[in-house]
Simulated assay, not measured.
Amino acid sequence: MKIGLFFGSFNPIHIGHLIIADILQDQTDLEEVWFVVSPQNPMKSSKSLLHEFDRLRMVELAIADHFKFRAVDVEFHMPRPSYTIDTLAYLTDKNPQHEFRLIIGGDNLNHFHKWKNSQEILRQYGLYVYPRPGKNRQVEDPNVTYIDAPLIDISATFIRKTIKSGASAKYLLHPDVLDYIRDKKLYL
């Protein structure tokens, strides 16, 4: 089975993530999309990062009604910081029956060459790239597939600020995720 791996902090997961994953699963040859919740991105600050189990639970809530989506906590059990190439190798070793592809935003393609073993990721796994606001670098490579998807300019940073200010994030989040955030008083 061909599976797209959508890595992220998901702090929190929002409708932009869900729309992109749905398009990838529905309009490409990907049979499933797995949301790989990253405990800590080596290239980002962890200052405003919720506990990994809260972020995983929000992903589970957001995708509960989609049988071709799966929440994955594999990086919770790996050495930190976790690097994409190590996670891909681990998942491939544990799931030899699957063929994995990496899903990234066009903005990440701008600095993909700085990732640990980026050329090996490209060669062994390939990339499915969706458009992001700002400058999206184009790479001509047979292992890079560009996805025709809407340009969704929603950021988790904006959502966290919205929640902290007491404003509504109703249409930015899955209703169950919003309820979870309210019940646990997160991002306040």
Results as ranks from 00 to 15, higher is better:
residue 80 R to P: 00
residue 145 T to Y: 12
residue 14 H to T: 12
residue 24 L to V: 09
residue 84 T to S: 11
residue 116 K to F: 11
residue 50 L to S: 07
residue 60 E to Y: 12
residue 39 P to F: 01
residue 130 Y to H: 10
residue 98 H to T: 04
residue 91 L to S: 13
residue 22 D to T: 14
residue 64 A to K: 13
residue 57 R to F: 01
residue 128 Y to A: 07
residue 6 F to N: 01
residue 45 S to C: 10
residue 45 S to K: 12
residue 156 A to C: 06
residue 107 D to P: 04
residue 14 H to F: 12
residue 185 K to A: 08
residue 66 H to Y: 05
residue 28 T to S: 11
residue 146 Y to I: 07
residue 74 V to H: 13
residue 185 K to C: 01
residue 23 I to P: 08
residue 27 Q to V: 00
residue 171 Y to G: 00
residue 82 S to T: 11
residue 178 L to K: 14
residue 152 I to E: 06
residue 75 E to L: 08
residue 26 D to S: 14
residue 152 I to T: 05
residue 109 L to D: 04
residue 88 L to G: 10
residue 73 D to K: 12
residue 33 V to I: 15
residue 135 K to F: 15
residue 160 R to W: 15
residue 173 L to P: 02
residue 52 E to F: 11
residue 163 I to T: 07
residue 83 Y to R: 04
residue 101 R to E: 06
residue 156 A to S: 15
residue 17 H to M: 03
residue 140 E to W: 01
residue 110 N to W: 07
residue 150 P to F: 05
residue 32 E to H: 13
residue 132 R to I: 10
residue 179 D to E: 15
residue 161 K to H: 15
residue 76 F to S: 05
residue 54 D to N: 04
residue 127 L to Q: 05
residue 110 N to L: 09
residue 97 Q to C: 02
residue 153 D to I: 03
residue 76 F to V: 03
residue 132 R to N: 11
residue 188 L to S: 01
residue 122 L to Q: 12
residue 129 V to D: 11
residue 54 D to A: 00
